[in-house]
Simulated assay, not measured.
Amino acid sequence: MDTIVLVGYIAGTLTTVSFVPQVIKAWKMRETRDLSLAMLVLFGIGILLWTLYGLWTGSLPIIAANVITFVLILVLLFMKVRYR
C-alpha cells in the first residue's frame, strides 16, 4: 500500500470517528438541541459530493470514510427530527 493511501485511510478514520462521540451523546441524552439542522444538512450534502468525487477518482479511502460519515450524519439527522 502506498504511503499516501495509508495517510488517506488514517485521515478518513479520524474524521469519521470524530462523529461517533456526538452520536453516542445524542443517543444517550435523547437531546439534539445543540446540533444545528442546517449544519447537518449542509455537511451531509458535502459528504455526498466527496463520495462522488471518491467514486470518480477511484479513491477507496475517500469513498469509505465518506460513506460511513454520511451514515453517522443520517443517524444524527434522524435523532434531530425525532427528539424535537
Rank of each mutant, 00 (worst) to 15 (best):
G8K: 04
V20M: 06
P21Q: 09
M1S: 14
V7Q: 14
L74T: 13
L40Y: 02
L14Q: 10
P21H: 11
L60N: 09
Q22E: 06
R33T: 05
W50S: 02
T16S: 08
N66E: 08
D2Q: 06
Q22S: 04
A38Y: 07
A65K: 12
R30E: 09
K25G: 09
T16V: 07
P21Y: 08
I24L: 08
Y53D: 09
T51L: 05
L35A: 06
L74F: 15
I24K: 06
F78A: 14
T3W: 15
L14K: 08
I10F: 14
F78Y: 15
E31K: 09
R30F: 06
D2L: 03
T13R: 14
I47R: 00
P61C: 05
I68G: 02
V67D: 10
D2W: 01
T57W: 03
L6F: 11
K28S: 07
L6S: 04
L60E: 12
W27F: 08
M29W: 05
P61H: 06
P61L: 07
R33P: 00
F78L: 13
Y83W: 08
F19Y: 03
D2M: 05
G58Y: 10
K80C: 09
M79C: 08
L42Y: 12
L49T: 01
R82D: 12
S36G: 04
L6P: 04
T57A: 03
M79H: 11
L40D: 00
L42V: 06
S36K: 06
I47L: 00
K80N: 12
I45L: 08
K80Q: 08
L60F: 11
T15W: 00
M79T: 07
V75P: 02
F78M: 14
K28W: 09
S36I: 01
L42H: 09
V81Y: 14
R30S: 03
L48T: 06
K28H: 13
L55W: 01
G12P: 02
S36A: 04
V7K: 14
A11V: 09
A64H: 15
Q22G: 03
V67M: 13
L6N: 08
A11E: 11
P21R: 07
I10H: 09
R30I: 02
M79Y: 14
L60M: 14
I45S: 07
Y53Q: 11
F43P: 04
I47K: 01
M1L: 13
I4G: 10
V7L: 13
K25D: 10
W50L: 01
K28A: 03
I10D: 08
M39N: 00
V17W: 13
E31L: 07
P61T: 04
I24C: 03
L76M: 10
W56T: 09
L77H: 11
L72K: 14
P61G: 07
T32R: 00
G58D: 11
G54R: 07
V7A: 13
I45N: 07
I45G: 06
G8T: 03
V17N: 13
I47Q: 04
W56N: 13
L77M: 14
D2S: 07
L55H: 01
A38L: 05
R82G: 13
G54E: 01
A11R: 13
F78C: 13
L72H: 15
G46M: 01
I68Y: 08
L74G: 15
P61N: 10
M39E: 00
L35M: 09
V75G: 04
